[in-house]
């Protein structure tokens, strides 16, 4: 399950909450962060899921060890740095290695010696634009390499990524203009480049819609801060409602939406996990 979204919308929180919700359902779950981030590690492990921070370089060494059963050859390649340079210098290689590691985590029989299998891998993917890059990298490489091991593995990973029975992509957004744009752009890129649709859109930080237009008219007649603050909340909620409607139109009823209410006291992972668990 890849979780993607624009910066600032609560993507990592939702990814962690999805992991916790899966654990509560008895699924063996690992939450994977990329770019060596460990933002949600504590919350995730406290809730009973495993956590991994994917490092493309480690993933590369694992790949080499797996590809070259003769340990000496793998060591030779690692120590000559030739592959490291290739990986560091070749555009898209980091994304490919990341996608490859996610694929490996999701195998019933793990390639990593002694590693335990998981029912679900939740990936806190990079922000939207780069998120598609990770999902599209295996196919790009499979096409570019044509033959050889990278072409073969690229094809295997891509066939998993583009299979809606095995891969879900969850977009996280807020009901604001730019995040909604990114969500719709993500959906389009995903369909074009990976051949997959979004599984779910989580709309985070939805403000309560407390006042009608008639209420607002009455509030305008009231002096003082309380009326002004209520009106301002009303304007904000109305703007959000318009963005929600735009998002709904863009998704054309083909992707379910799940709203997570705004919490003025701050983010509460357990509450979000409850909500996701009930909805899924």
């Amino acid at each position: 399950m890849y979780v993607s979204g624009k910066g600032g919308v609560g993507k990592s929180t939702v990814a962690a909450a999805l992991g916790l919700a899966a654990v509560r359902r008895g699924r063996r779950t690992v939450v994977a962060e990329v770019h060596r981030r460990t933002d949600v590690e504590h919350a995730v492990t406290a809730g009973g899921a495993d956590h991994i921070s994917i490092d493309p370089e480690d993933a590369m060494e694992e790949y080499l060890a797996d590809q070259l059963p003769v340990r000496a050859l793998a060591d030779l390649l690692v120590s000559s740095r030739a592959f490291t340079y290739l990986a560091a210098a070749t555009p898209g290689m980091r994304e490919l290695l990341t996608a490859g590691k996610v694929w490996e985590l999701a195998q019933d029989r793990r390639r990593t010696p002694g590693a335990k299998p998981y029912d679900l891998v939740v990936v806190d993917a990079p922000a939207t634009g780069h998120g598609v890059a990770v999902l599209a990298a295996p196919r790009t490489f499979a096409d570019a390499a044509r033959v050889g091991p990278i072409a073969r593995h690229g094809t295997i990973i891509d066939s998993m990524l583009s299979d809606p029975a095995r891969t879900a992509v969850v977009a996280v957004t807020t009901p604001e203009e730019l995040p909604v744009n990114e969500t719709l752009a993500l959906r389009q890129a995903l369909r074009e480049q990976v051949g997959l649709d979004l599984t779910l859109v989580v709309v985070n930080a939805v403000r309560p819609d407390r006042f009608t237009e008639a209420d607002a008219a009455r509030l305008r007649a009231v002096d003082g801060a309380a009326g002004r603050i209520a009106l301002s909340a009303h304007v904000h909620a109305r703007a959000q409602r318009a963005q929600l409607a735009r998002l709904r139109r863009g998704l054309a009823g083909e992707v379910p939406m799940l709203r997570v209410p705004f919490n003025p006291a701050g983010v509460d992972l357990d509450t979000i996990a409850d909500r996701l668990e009930r909805a899924l």
Partner: peptide, 15 residues
């Protein structure tokens, strides 16, 4: 040797 191993794990077209 290094090159031939590299070829083995990547594929020559990509290289």
């Amino acid at each position: 040797v290094v090159f031939s191993v590299l070829k083995r794990v990547t594929g020559v077209d990509l290289l």
